[in-house]
Amino acid sequence: MNWLLVVVGAAVGAPLRYLTDRAVQARHDSVFPWGTFVVNAAGSLVLGAVAGASVSSPAYALLGTGLCGALTTYSTFSYETLRLAERGWRFLAVANAAASVLVGLGSVFLGLELARALTA
């Protein structure tokens, strides 16, 4: 059962990442990969909230492992950081790596605390 929920969550999460990335780029033309930055931060916030709400195992499979798992990405983040560095935008590469990790970690903490406060 959990496998099916992972499939359903990921089948929504992956295209949601693509569409969000497009929408961010269409509104904000920049070489800095804001689209991926936004989905990783948002997905981390939602996953923190899902974990903080102590949801059931099926709900976690759907929303956590599936949806947030596929909405966020490490592979896209790593390749774009490599390309920024290789194309001469070293500062943007370092800024992307540092900001993505710090904001991702901060988002997860924020999500956890919000959900715990609301469900306490």
Partner: peptide, 9 residues
């Protein structure tokens, strides 16, 4: 690859 890797977890 986007679904395989994850940042949130």
């Amino acid at each position: 690859l986007g679904g395989f890797t994850t940042f949130s977890t």
